[in-house]
Amino acid sequence: TTVHVNGVTYHFPNPEEAKKFVDRVVKEAGLTVEVKGNQWDVE
């Protein structure tokens, strides 16, 4: 699973890890998340 955060790419072994990361980032920074298949874009 690939997560893009403001142009930076993070790779995770599974969607659960990616979701935990995204949830944390979104809570801390108040960002928006767009999910496209296995790819997350966070802005």
Rank of each mutant, 00 (worst) to 15 (best):
F12P: 01
T32P: 07
E28C: 08
N38T: 06
T2K: 05
H11N: 06
E34R: 01
K19H: 08
V3H: 00
V26S: 11
Y10K: 02
N38S: 06
D23L: 04
P13A: 12
E34Y: 04
T9Y: 11
N6Y: 06
F21D: 01
K27M: 13
H4P: 01
E17D: 10
G7R: 01
T2W: 13
T32I: 13
K36H: 15
E28Q: 06
Y10C: 04
T1I: 15
P13E: 11
N14R: 01
V3K: 00
V26K: 10
V35G: 05
Q39H: 14
F21V: 01
T2E: 06
Q39M: 09
V8C: 11
K36I: 15
W40A: 09
G30V: 05
K20D: 11
G7V: 00
T32S: 11
F12W: 00
G7N: 04
L31Q: 08
V8Q: 09
F12E: 00
T32D: 13
E16M: 06
A18T: 02
K19N: 06
V25N: 04
P15I: 13
H11C: 15
N38I: 03
G7T: 02
E16H: 07
T9M: 12
P15V: 12
G30P: 05
V35I: 15
K27R: 08
E43P: 10
H11L: 06
E28A: 04
E28K: 04
K20Y: 05
W40F: 10
L31I: 13
D41G: 08
T1G: 03
N14V: 01
V3L: 05
P13G: 07
T32E: 13
N38L: 04
T2G: 01
V22T: 04
F21M: 01
V5F: 13
E43N: 13
V42K: 09
T1L: 10
V35T: 07
A29G: 12
T32L: 11
E17S: 06
L31F: 12
L31P: 06
K27V: 07
V26G: 09
K19I: 07
K20N: 09
G37S: 03
K19Y: 09
K19W: 12
V3R: 00
V25H: 05
V8P: 00
E16T: 06
E16S: 06
V33E: 14
T1P: 04
V26Q: 12
Y10M: 05
V26Y: 12
V25F: 12
V35H: 11
V22D: 01
H11Q: 05
V26W: 11
F21G: 00
V42S: 10
T1E: 04
T9Q: 09
E34V: 14
V33D: 13
F21I: 00
H11P: 02
N14D: 11
N38Q: 11
V22K: 04
R24D: 11
T1V: 15
V42M: 08
N38M: 03
E16L: 06
V42E: 10
P13Q: 12
K27F: 09
F12L: 01
T32C: 07
G7F: 02
K19C: 07
E34P: 14
K20G: 05
H11W: 14
V25E: 04
T9D: 07
D41W: 15
D41T: 15
T1M: 08
F12Q: 00
G30I: 06
V5L: 10
E16P: 00
G30F: 06
K36S: 15
E43F: 13
A18H: 01
W40C: 11
L31A: 12
N38C: 15
E28F: 05
T1D: 03
Q39N: 09
P15E: 14
E34S: 12
E43H: 14
H4V: 14
E17P: 00
N38W: 06
Q39W: 14
D23Y: 03
V33R: 00
K27C: 07
V5Y: 13
V22G: 02
N38A: 05
K19D: 04
V33Q: 06
P15Y: 15
V25M: 12
T9L: 11
F21Q: 00
E28W: 07
T32M: 08
W40E: 11
L31N: 10
K27G: 11
T2Q: 07
P13C: 07
T1W: 15
D41R: 04
V3G: 00
P13W: 08
E17Y: 02
D23W: 02
N14E: 04
R24K: 13
G30D: 08
N6P: 01
Y10P: 01
F21Y: 03
W40D: 11
Q39K: 08
V35D: 14
V5T: 02
E28G: 05
E17C: 05
G30R: 00
T9N: 06
V26A: 11
F21L: 02
G7A: 02
D23I: 03
Q39Y: 14
A18Y: 02
V25W: 10
T1R: 03
E43I: 15
A18S: 02
G7S: 03
N6D: 08
V8M: 09
N14S: 12
V5E: 01
A18L: 05
D41P: 08
R24T: 14
H4I: 15
G37A: 04
L31S: 11
T9H: 06
T32W: 04
L31M: 13
T9S: 10
P13L: 12
Q39G: 14
T9A: 13
E16V: 05
H11V: 07
L31D: 10
G7K: 02
A29Q: 14
N14P: 00
T2V: 12
H11S: 07
R24A: 13
F21W: 06
E16I: 05
F12M: 01
G37L: 11
E16K: 04
T2R: 05
D23S: 03
G37Q: 09
N6L: 10
N6C: 04
V35N: 13
D23K: 02
F12T: 00
E34Q: 05
V35Q: 04
P15S: 12
Y10R: 00
K27Q: 11
Y10W: 05
T2M: 08
E28D: 07
R24F: 13
D23P: 00
P15W: 14
A29S: 12
V22H: 06
E28L: 05
V33A: 10
W40S: 08
V33M: 04
W40V: 08
